[in-house]
Amino acid sequence: MKKPIELDWANLGFNYIKTDYRYISYWDKGEWDDGTLTEDNTVHISEGSTALHYGQTVFEGMKAYRAKDGSINLFRPEENAERMQRSCRRLMMPVIPTDIFIEAVKKVVKANEAYIPPYGTGGSLYLRPYMIGIGDNIGVKPASNYLFSIFCMPVGAYFKNGLVPTNFLVSDYDRAAGNGTGSSKVGGNYGGSLLPGSEAHKRNFGDAIYLDPITHTKIEEVGAANFFGITKDNQFVTPISPSILPSITKYSLLYLAKERLGLEVKEEDVFVDRLDRFAEAGACGTAAVITPIGGIQYKDNFHTFYSETETGPITKKLYKELTGIQYGEVKAPKGWIIKV
Protein backbone atom coordinates (compact mmCIF):
# COMPACT_ATOMS: atom_id res chain seq x y z
CA MET A 1 0.00 0.00 0.00
CA LYS A 2 1.50 3.29 -1.11
CA LYS A 3 1.54 6.17 1.35
CA PRO A 4 -1.04 8.84 0.37
CA ILE A 5 0.27 12.15 -0.85
CA GLU A 6 -0.28 15.25 1.27
CA LEU A 7 -3.73 16.63 0.48
CA ASP A 8 -6.47 18.22 2.55
CA TRP A 9 -8.60 15.07 2.35
CA ALA A 10 -11.38 16.54 4.50
CA ASN A 11 -11.96 19.41 2.08
CA LEU A 12 -11.70 17.75 -1.32
CA GLY A 13 -14.43 18.76 -3.73
CA PHE A 14 -15.32 17.45 -7.16
CA ASN A 15 -12.62 19.30 -9.08
CA TYR A 16 -9.92 18.46 -11.59
CA ILE A 17 -6.62 17.55 -9.94
CA LYS A 18 -3.70 16.48 -12.12
CA THR A 19 -2.47 13.08 -11.02
CA ASP A 20 0.73 11.35 -12.12
CA TYR A 21 -0.40 8.97 -14.86
CA ARG A 22 -3.17 8.36 -17.35
CA TYR A 23 -3.75 5.52 -19.83
CA ILE A 24 -3.87 6.21 -23.57
CA SER A 25 -4.44 3.97 -26.57
CA TYR A 26 -4.95 4.67 -30.30
CA TRP A 27 -7.10 2.94 -32.92
CA ASP A 28 -5.56 2.87 -36.39
CA LYS A 29 -6.04 0.59 -39.40
CA GLY A 30 -8.79 -1.37 -37.69
CA GLU A 31 -7.15 -2.21 -34.38
CA TRP A 32 -6.08 -0.82 -31.01
CA ASP A 33 -2.41 -0.50 -30.10
CA ASP A 34 -1.11 -1.96 -26.83
CA GLY A 35 -1.83 1.19 -24.83
CA THR A 36 0.50 2.88 -22.39
CA LEU A 37 0.66 5.04 -19.27
CA THR A 38 1.78 8.62 -19.78
CA GLU A 39 2.49 11.60 -17.56
CA ASP A 40 1.27 14.03 -20.26
CA ASN A 41 -2.22 15.35 -19.45
CA THR A 42 -2.51 17.28 -22.72
CA VAL A 43 -4.33 15.67 -25.66
CA HIS A 44 -2.79 16.38 -29.08
CA ILE A 45 -5.26 15.88 -31.95
CA SER A 46 -5.85 17.02 -35.53
CA GLU A 47 -7.98 20.06 -36.22
CA GLY A 48 -10.09 17.76 -38.40
CA SER A 49 -11.01 15.44 -35.51
CA THR A 50 -14.67 14.39 -35.59
CA ALA A 51 -14.82 14.95 -31.82
CA LEU A 52 -14.45 18.68 -32.46
CA HIS A 53 -17.00 19.01 -35.26
CA TYR A 54 -19.51 16.17 -35.15
CA GLY A 55 -19.63 15.19 -31.49
CA GLN A 56 -18.02 11.76 -31.83
CA THR A 57 -17.25 11.55 -28.11
CA VAL A 58 -18.29 9.09 -25.41
CA PHE A 59 -17.22 8.79 -21.78
CA GLU A 60 -17.77 7.02 -18.48
CA GLY A 61 -17.55 7.90 -14.81
CA MET A 62 -16.52 5.44 -12.10
CA LYS A 63 -14.59 5.27 -8.82
CA ALA A 64 -11.97 3.32 -6.93
CA TYR A 65 -12.30 3.09 -3.14
CA ARG A 66 -9.85 2.50 -0.32
CA ALA A 67 -11.57 -0.29 1.59
CA LYS A 68 -11.70 -0.79 5.33
CA ASP A 69 -9.02 -3.51 5.14
CA GLY A 70 -6.65 -1.28 3.15
CA SER A 71 -7.31 -2.93 -0.22
CA ILE A 72 -8.64 -1.09 -3.28
CA ASN A 73 -12.13 -1.74 -4.61
CA LEU A 74 -13.58 -1.17 -8.06
CA PHE A 75 -17.37 -1.16 -8.13
CA ARG A 76 -18.91 -3.14 -11.04
CA PRO A 77 -16.38 -1.95 -13.66
CA GLU A 78 -17.64 -4.45 -16.24
CA GLU A 79 -20.93 -2.51 -16.26
CA ASN A 80 -19.05 0.67 -17.18
CA ALA A 81 -17.19 -1.21 -19.92
CA GLU A 82 -20.40 -2.58 -21.39
CA ARG A 83 -22.20 0.76 -21.23
CA MET A 84 -19.29 2.44 -22.97
CA GLN A 85 -19.42 -0.23 -25.67
CA ARG A 86 -23.12 0.52 -26.23
CA SER A 87 -22.37 4.25 -26.45
CA CYS A 88 -19.57 3.58 -28.96
CA ARG A 89 -21.81 1.48 -31.18
CA ARG A 90 -24.43 4.25 -31.18
CA LEU A 91 -21.83 6.71 -32.55
CA MET A 92 -20.18 4.17 -34.88
CA MET A 93 -16.96 4.07 -32.87
CA PRO A 94 -14.81 0.99 -32.21
CA VAL A 95 -15.38 -0.68 -28.84
CA ILE A 96 -12.85 -1.39 -26.11
CA PRO A 97 -13.15 -5.05 -25.05
CA THR A 98 -14.21 -5.48 -21.42
CA ASP A 99 -11.01 -7.20 -20.31
CA ILE A 100 -8.82 -4.48 -21.83
CA PHE A 101 -11.02 -1.77 -20.30
CA ILE A 102 -10.79 -3.24 -16.80
CA GLU A 103 -7.06 -3.88 -17.07
CA ALA A 104 -6.51 -0.27 -18.18
CA VAL A 105 -8.56 0.97 -15.21
CA LYS A 106 -6.46 -1.14 -12.85
CA LYS A 107 -3.23 0.24 -14.33
CA VAL A 108 -4.38 3.82 -13.81
CA VAL A 109 -5.48 3.13 -10.23
CA LYS A 110 -2.22 1.35 -9.34
CA ALA A 111 -0.09 4.09 -10.91
CA ASN A 112 -1.96 6.76 -8.95
CA GLU A 113 -2.55 4.83 -5.73
CA ALA A 114 -1.06 7.61 -3.63
CA TYR A 115 -4.00 9.82 -4.64
CA ILE A 116 -6.69 7.49 -3.32
CA PRO A 117 -8.27 9.18 -0.30
CA PRO A 118 -7.71 7.21 2.92
CA TYR A 119 -10.50 5.03 4.27
CA GLY A 120 -12.82 6.96 6.53
CA THR A 121 -12.50 10.31 4.77
CA GLY A 122 -15.51 9.63 2.53
CA GLY A 123 -13.40 10.35 -0.55
CA SER A 124 -12.59 8.17 -3.54
CA LEU A 125 -10.56 8.14 -6.73
CA TYR A 126 -12.76 9.25 -9.61
CA LEU A 127 -11.94 7.74 -13.01
CA ARG A 128 -12.92 9.22 -16.35
CA PRO A 129 -12.58 6.82 -19.31
CA TYR A 130 -13.35 8.50 -22.64
CA MET A 131 -13.05 7.95 -26.36
CA ILE A 132 -12.94 10.53 -29.16
CA GLY A 133 -12.82 10.47 -32.92
CA ILE A 134 -9.53 11.96 -34.17
CA GLY A 135 -7.49 12.26 -37.36
CA ASP A 136 -7.64 14.35 -40.53
CA ASN A 137 -11.37 14.35 -41.34
CA ILE A 138 -13.82 16.87 -42.75
CA GLY A 139 -16.88 15.07 -44.10
CA VAL A 140 -19.80 13.99 -41.91
CA LYS A 141 -18.80 10.38 -41.38
CA PRO A 142 -17.12 8.29 -38.68
CA ALA A 143 -13.45 9.03 -38.05
CA SER A 144 -10.78 6.64 -39.25
CA ASN A 145 -8.75 7.03 -36.04
CA TYR A 146 -9.70 7.06 -32.37
CA LEU A 147 -8.17 7.85 -29.00
CA PHE A 148 -9.17 6.02 -25.81
CA SER A 149 -7.91 7.32 -22.50
CA ILE A 150 -8.51 7.07 -18.75
CA PHE A 151 -7.49 9.73 -16.25
CA CYS A 152 -8.28 10.06 -12.57
CA MET A 153 -8.38 12.43 -9.61
CA PRO A 154 -9.21 12.26 -5.90
CA VAL A 155 -12.65 13.57 -5.02
CA GLY A 156 -14.19 14.23 -1.65
CA ALA A 157 -17.38 13.11 -0.02
CA TYR A 158 -20.24 14.59 -2.04
CA PHE A 159 -22.18 15.55 1.09
CA LYS A 160 -20.02 17.47 3.56
CA ASN A 161 -22.84 17.68 6.09
CA GLY A 162 -24.43 14.29 5.49
CA LEU A 163 -27.33 13.51 3.16
CA VAL A 164 -29.02 16.86 2.57
CA PRO A 165 -32.17 17.08 0.41
CA THR A 166 -32.08 19.28 -2.68
CA ASN A 167 -34.94 20.92 -4.58
CA PHE A 168 -35.27 20.64 -8.36
CA LEU A 169 -37.05 22.51 -11.17
CA VAL A 170 -38.86 20.78 -14.02
CA SER A 171 -37.41 22.17 -17.24
CA ASP A 172 -39.20 23.08 -20.46
CA TYR A 173 -36.15 21.85 -22.37
CA ASP A 174 -35.69 18.28 -23.56
CA ARG A 175 -32.58 16.43 -22.47
CA ALA A 176 -32.62 14.15 -25.53
CA ALA A 177 -34.75 13.24 -28.53
CA GLY A 178 -37.27 10.44 -28.18
CA ASN A 179 -35.31 8.10 -30.41
CA GLY A 180 -31.97 9.86 -30.11
CA THR A 181 -28.85 9.40 -28.00
CA GLY A 182 -30.41 9.71 -24.54
CA SER A 183 -29.54 6.15 -23.54
CA SER A 184 -25.89 6.64 -24.54
CA LYS A 185 -23.25 8.51 -22.53
CA VAL A 186 -22.24 10.92 -25.26
CA GLY A 187 -20.87 14.43 -24.88
CA GLY A 188 -23.69 16.21 -26.68
CA ASN A 189 -26.26 15.14 -24.09
CA TYR A 190 -24.34 17.08 -21.46
CA GLY A 191 -23.56 20.14 -23.57
CA GLY A 192 -27.28 20.59 -24.15
CA SER A 193 -27.97 20.41 -20.41
CA LEU A 194 -25.82 23.41 -19.48
CA LEU A 195 -28.45 26.08 -20.24
CA PRO A 196 -31.41 24.46 -18.43
CA GLY A 197 -29.12 23.62 -15.52
CA SER A 198 -27.95 27.22 -15.34
CA GLU A 199 -31.52 28.50 -15.41
CA ALA A 200 -32.44 26.16 -12.55
CA HIS A 201 -29.45 27.36 -10.50
CA LYS A 202 -30.44 31.00 -11.04
CA ARG A 203 -33.78 30.18 -9.43
CA ASN A 204 -31.99 28.53 -6.48
CA PHE A 205 -32.74 24.95 -7.48
CA GLY A 206 -30.14 22.19 -7.48
CA ASP A 207 -30.65 21.33 -11.15
CA ALA A 208 -33.22 20.75 -13.87
CA ILE A 209 -35.54 17.76 -14.15
CA TYR A 210 -36.25 16.57 -17.68
CA LEU A 211 -39.54 15.11 -18.85
CA ASP A 212 -39.97 12.62 -21.66
CA PRO A 213 -39.53 14.34 -25.04
CA ILE A 214 -42.66 12.85 -26.62
CA THR A 215 -45.48 13.74 -24.19
CA HIS A 216 -43.77 15.96 -21.60
CA THR A 217 -45.75 14.21 -18.86
CA LYS A 218 -43.24 11.74 -17.37
CA ILE A 219 -40.04 12.29 -15.36
CA GLU A 220 -36.94 10.94 -17.07
CA GLU A 221 -33.74 12.34 -15.52
CA VAL A 222 -32.70 14.68 -12.73
CA GLY A 223 -29.82 16.74 -14.06
CA ALA A 224 -27.22 14.14 -15.02
CA ALA A 225 -28.70 11.51 -12.70
CA ASN A 226 -31.54 8.98 -12.66
CA PHE A 227 -34.73 9.47 -10.62
CA PHE A 228 -36.20 7.10 -8.07
CA GLY A 229 -39.13 7.30 -5.69
CA ILE A 230 -40.29 5.32 -2.66
CA THR A 231 -44.07 5.02 -2.68
CA LYS A 232 -46.19 5.27 0.43
CA ASP A 233 -46.65 1.48 0.31
CA ASN A 234 -42.87 0.88 0.14
CA GLN A 235 -42.31 0.26 -3.56
CA PHE A 236 -39.01 1.38 -5.12
CA VAL A 237 -39.99 2.94 -8.46
CA THR A 238 -37.75 4.30 -11.19
CA PRO A 239 -38.65 5.56 -14.68
CA ILE A 240 -38.26 3.43 -17.79
CA SER A 241 -37.70 5.00 -21.20
CA PRO A 242 -35.49 4.50 -24.27
CA SER A 243 -34.12 8.03 -23.79
CA ILE A 244 -32.83 7.54 -20.21
CA LEU A 245 -29.17 6.74 -19.60
CA PRO A 246 -29.16 3.39 -17.75
CA SER A 247 -27.42 4.24 -14.48
CA ILE A 248 -25.23 1.55 -12.92
CA THR A 249 -26.05 3.08 -9.53
CA LYS A 250 -29.79 2.87 -10.26
CA TYR A 251 -29.70 -0.79 -11.18
CA SER A 252 -27.59 -1.50 -8.11
CA LEU A 253 -30.19 0.25 -5.94
CA LEU A 254 -33.00 -1.70 -7.63
CA TYR A 255 -31.27 -4.92 -6.64
CA LEU A 256 -30.52 -3.82 -3.08
CA ALA A 257 -34.01 -2.44 -2.52
CA LYS A 258 -35.47 -5.83 -3.40
CA GLU A 259 -32.86 -8.26 -2.05
CA ARG A 260 -31.61 -6.41 1.03
CA LEU A 261 -34.54 -4.20 2.06
CA GLY A 262 -37.39 -6.44 0.87
CA LEU A 263 -39.12 -3.74 -1.17
CA GLU A 264 -41.15 -4.35 -4.29
CA VAL A 265 -39.29 -2.74 -7.20
CA LYS A 266 -40.68 -1.40 -10.45
CA GLU A 267 -39.41 0.30 -13.59
CA GLU A 268 -42.40 2.18 -14.94
CA ASP A 269 -43.69 5.56 -16.08
CA VAL A 270 -43.39 8.26 -13.42
CA PHE A 271 -45.99 10.93 -14.21
CA VAL A 272 -45.01 14.38 -13.02
CA ASP A 273 -48.59 15.18 -11.98
CA ARG A 274 -48.75 12.12 -9.68
CA LEU A 275 -45.88 12.83 -7.33
CA ASP A 276 -48.10 12.52 -4.28
CA ARG A 277 -47.77 8.72 -4.51
CA PHE A 278 -44.18 9.01 -3.27
CA ALA A 279 -43.14 9.32 0.36
CA GLU A 280 -39.47 9.79 -0.57
CA ALA A 281 -37.54 10.57 -3.76
CA GLY A 282 -33.98 10.86 -4.91
CA ALA A 283 -31.54 11.17 -7.78
CA CYS A 284 -28.80 8.57 -8.16
CA GLY A 285 -25.47 8.40 -9.97
CA THR A 286 -21.75 7.84 -9.54
CA ALA A 287 -20.83 11.23 -8.04
CA ALA A 288 -23.21 11.38 -5.07
CA VAL A 289 -24.59 7.82 -5.10
CA ILE A 290 -27.89 9.32 -3.91
CA THR A 291 -29.06 12.92 -3.80
CA PRO A 292 -32.26 13.09 -1.71
CA ILE A 293 -34.95 15.21 -3.37
CA GLY A 294 -36.66 17.59 -0.99
CA GLY A 295 -39.15 18.98 -3.47
CA ILE A 296 -39.92 19.49 -7.16
CA GLN A 297 -41.18 22.70 -8.76
CA TYR A 298 -43.48 21.91 -11.71
CA LYS A 299 -45.04 25.00 -13.33
CA ASP A 300 -46.81 26.80 -10.46
CA ASN A 301 -46.85 23.84 -8.10
CA PHE A 302 -44.16 22.83 -5.61
CA HIS A 303 -44.37 19.27 -4.30
CA THR A 304 -42.51 18.29 -1.12
CA PHE A 305 -41.56 14.67 -0.47
CA TYR A 306 -40.36 13.45 2.95
CA SER A 307 -38.82 16.78 3.96
CA GLU A 308 -36.85 19.68 2.54
CA THR A 309 -34.32 19.36 5.36
CA GLU A 310 -34.20 15.69 6.35
CA THR A 311 -33.59 12.50 4.34
CA GLY A 312 -36.19 9.75 4.46
CA PRO A 313 -35.43 6.47 6.30
CA ILE A 314 -35.45 4.15 3.26
CA THR A 315 -33.22 6.50 1.25
CA LYS A 316 -30.78 6.53 4.18
CA LYS A 317 -30.75 2.72 4.33
CA LEU A 318 -30.10 2.40 0.61
CA TYR A 319 -27.26 4.93 0.75
CA LYS A 320 -25.65 3.18 3.72
CA GLU A 321 -25.96 -0.24 2.09
CA LEU A 322 -24.47 0.78 -1.24
CA THR A 323 -21.63 2.89 0.14
CA GLY A 324 -20.92 0.14 2.66
CA ILE A 325 -20.43 -2.30 -0.22
CA GLN A 326 -18.18 0.12 -2.10
CA TYR A 327 -15.89 0.68 0.91
CA GLY A 328 -15.81 -2.97 1.96
CA GLU A 329 -17.91 -2.53 5.11
CA VAL A 330 -20.88 -4.56 3.85
CA LYS A 331 -20.80 -7.90 2.02
CA ALA A 332 -21.17 -7.32 -1.72
CA PRO A 333 -23.33 -9.34 -4.09
CA LYS A 334 -21.27 -11.77 -6.12
CA GLY A 335 -19.17 -10.06 -8.79
CA TRP A 336 -19.85 -6.48 -7.70
CA ILE A 337 -16.37 -5.75 -6.31
CA ILE A 338 -13.11 -6.26 -8.19
CA LYS A 339 -9.89 -5.82 -6.28
CA VAL A 340 -7.02 -3.84 -7.78
Rank of each mutant, 00 (worst) to 15 (best):
R66D: 00
H53Q: 11
G55K: 01
P77F: 04
A81H: 02
G61Y: 11
Y65A: 11
P94I: 08
Q85A: 14
E82Q: 15
G61K: 03
A81R: 01
E82S: 09
E82I: 09
N73L: 03
G70Y: 04
E78M: 10
R83F: 09
F59A: 04
A51R: 08
Y65K: 05
A51N: 07
I72W: 00
Q85G: 15
S87K: 04
E82H: 11
Q85C: 04
K63A: 07
I72F: 06
R89F: 11
C88H: 01
S71D: 02
C88T: 06
S71Q: 00
Q85I: 05
R76N: 07
G70T: 03
K63S: 08
F75N: 05
P77H: 01
H53Y: 04
I72E: 11
F75W: 09
V58A: 14
C88G: 02
Q56M: 00
M62Y: 06
K68G: 07
K68T: 11
Q56G: 03
F75I: 03
A64Q: 01
V58Q: 09
N80G: 04
E78Y: 13
A51Q: 11
S49N: 05
M62N: 07
S87C: 10
L91M: 15
P94H: 00
N73V: 04
R83Q: 04
Y54I: 08
G55T: 04
T57W: 07
R76H: 05
E78D: 14
L52D: 03
E82C: 04
T50K: 06
Q56A: 07
E60Q: 09
R89K: 15
S71Y: 01
Q85D: 12
P94Q: 03
R90I: 12
R66L: 08
Q85N: 15
V58C: 12
G70E: 00
T57D: 13
E60W: 02
A81Y: 02
Q56N: 06
K63H: 06
A51P: 11
S71K: 11
Q85S: 13
N80M: 00
G61A: 13
P77W: 00
R86Q: 12
R89A: 15
C88R: 09
T50D: 10
T50M: 10
L91I: 15
T57M: 09
L74I: 06
N80A: 10
H53P: 13
S49I: 08
R89D: 13
M84S: 07
M84V: 14
I72V: 15
G61I: 03
T57R: 02
A51M: 06
N73D: 06
S87P: 11
